[in-house]
Amino acid sequence: MRRRSLLLAAVPAGLATIAGCGDDDKSASSKASASPSVSAAPPPKIVEGPLPAITAGTKFNEKPTVAKGTGQPAENLAVKTVIAGSGRTVAENDFIQANYLGQIWATGKVFDQSYDRSPLVLQLAKGSVIDGWRYALAGKKVGSRVEMAVPPTLGYGKEGNAQAGIKGTDTLVFVVDLLNAFNSKSSATGKPVPQTDTALPKVGTNTDGKAPSIDVPKADPPKKLVSNYVLEGDGAALKADQAILCQFKGVVWESGKPFEQTYTTGRLSQFSLEQMQQIVKGLSQGLVGKKVGSRVMIVVPPDLGYGDTPPSGGVIKKGSTLVFSVDILAAM
């Protein structure tokens, strides 16, 4: 599993799994990742500076070099849009995909950065990320570069972060390149792939954030795992040790009844492919190697699903074959 970012809040949001499936679409609301509640405290005052100069790597999504802070930093959150993007506006509780660099104001020491690894994906929500990011990035547009100076009260507090070498009195400087943003209305962005096999389910290709249709043929299900593109994206192929951010819908082949989905819940789902391997093995296996930005139709035979031990009280029975439509929004 790739290294966890140091800027996550002390209690990062957990990864949701499809552990128990209910009778209808309402069941998904308790299983998909919930948006943490917004703090009741008033937003902090935001000022324009002071902020250190970006001395190199000045283009969007280029690894920056930032000068050491001079003088005393502001007591408030200082925020500047260095490059204005033209994408959609980010709102609190959205998930963002970003590259970033963080350093300590007084010393200029870089304590964390993603440009040499892979972009960070996290929820812009209380409990998921330090408060300075929540307040500085809400309202910014995708495609923007934002610089901020975060006082301790909106960072790691009086305790600091010993792992990163951050003291409880340190103001932190970040440069953040907003690459993408996702919410409950997000869909896969790939190109439609012909669905010509009449013996397999046909999945809708709508990209409006609504649940796609899943039409199951009146035929016996395949006995082996099937994983096909419905919309093929152009992102990186998923690896077995990654987690994903997604929209999904699942139905039972034999009855056509849905057992879980995210599209009407106002929430997205996050899960680790390694963890899913222990729950619905076929779902994990069907996603490995598929490209980010895709919609994938996966048929999971009983031996790679719940087999003879289905979740109690639901529409999944012993020996049920499961059909999933999964929109892979981002890899985490």
Rank of each mutant, 00 (worst) to 15 (best):
D94S: 03
F95M: 04
I96M: 02
I96H: 03
I96K: 03
Q97P: 11
Q97L: 10
A98F: 12
N99M: 05
N99F: 04
Y100L: 09
Y100V: 09
Y100W: 07
G102M: 15
Q103S: 11
I104D: 11
W105L: 08
A106H: 10
G108Y: 11
K109M: 08
V110W: 01
F111D: 04
F111W: 14
F111N: 08
D112S: 07
Q113H: 11
S114L: 05
S114K: 05
S114W: 00
Y115K: 00
R117Q: 01
R117I: 00
S118E: 11
S118L: 03
P119D: 00
P119I: 01
P119M: 01
L120N: 03
V121H: 00
Q123Y: 05
A125I: 02
G127H: 09
G127R: 14
S128A: 10
V129P: 00
V129A: 03
I130M: 04
W133T: 12
R134T: 13
Y135H: 12
Y135K: 06
Y135S: 01
Y135A: 08
A136R: 02
A136L: 05
G139N: 04
G139E: 08
K141P: 13
V142C: 13
V142E: 05
V142W: 06
G143M: 09
G143S: 08
S144R: 05
S144C: 12
R145Y: 01
R145N: 07
V146R: 04
M148I: 11
A149D: 11
A149F: 14
V150I: 14
P151Y: 09
P151V: 09
P152L: 10
P152Y: 09
P152V: 09
T153H: 08
L154C: 10
L154H: 12
L154A: 12
G155P: 02
Y156F: 15
Y156N: 06
Y156R: 13
G157A: 10
K158T: 15
E159I: 13
E159T: 14
E159C: 13
A162F: 09
Q163E: 12
A164D: 09
G165S: 04
G165D: 07
I166A: 02
I166Q: 05
I166L: 10
K167F: 03
T171G: 06
L172N: 08
V173F: 09
V175P: 00
V175K: 00
D177S: 08
A181G: 13
N183A: 15
N183W: 12
S184C: 13
K185R: 15
K185N: 15
